[in-house]
Nucleic acid binder design. Sequence first.
DNA 1: CTGTATCCTTTGTGATACTG
DNA 2: CAGTATCACAAAGGATACAG
Lengths: 125, 125
Amino acid sequence: MNAETGEALDAELACPIAPVVDIVFSRWTTPILWTLHEYGRQRFVELQRRIATITPKVLTQRLRQMERDGLVVRTYHPEVPPRVEYEISELGGSLAPLFAALTEWSAENLEKVERARSAYDEGEG
Amino acid sequence: MNAETGEALDAELACPIAPVVDIVFSRWTTPILWTLHEYGRQRFVELQRRIATITPKVLTQRLRQMERDGLVVRTYHPEVPPRVEYEISELGGSLAPLFAALTEWSAENLEKVERARSAYDEGEG
DNA sequence: CTGTATCCTTTGTGATACTG
DNA sequence: CAGTATCACAAAGGATACAG
């Protein structure tokens, strides 16, 4: 947010859910949350394997952000070699109904979007 | 999606709602949908004024994408000067319960995120 | 294993000016 | 009014290599 320009404020005025969208639907956050939800508490390398196209750099960045936002919990085990586990926090878990609603909307309407696109593109050509 | 690398496929496997997130929660789409929902059918310049920080270029880009996805309807009135009106489609309107759920989650949990951030940043300093 | 560091490319976005 | 065209820039993301 910028106090000079008030950009974030403007975005919030135009759309009250803008802050939540920033937190929950940033790129890579939903795949990470989903994977943690599907497979439970797991290590860094497991996440990396399951989200095949993510790089360690980006995975670290997103996990840090989500940890800071209180959505995931990071547990460091000081062993050799080091072991780190990630899991969904209670706050993160409270998003489950939301994700379920998104899944349902997707099941009912994703195909309509596809058809709309085809129709639109046909009108173009 | 890239057939060679299968990147989109990977993202979908890791997270079934990835396609919906792309469609609905791209940048600027929620403010635009929200404004259309709040003020109803309106002209290009009205949208531009209500979402103060958006530029005409970006507004056009987003509106075109949402029109192609079937979320909004564009009506062109061939007058002088030209008049164009945008409104939410039936498909776009079907997102309303989702947005309501997001609003509710925000009301209940946004503050928790703020507190988690403060706690995290304190531990850093 | 769990990341960091570096470099590089791409994408998104903004500023500005202009057209029918 | 409703955009389009062009330039420019910053940030996000990917590739790769390396460290504790």
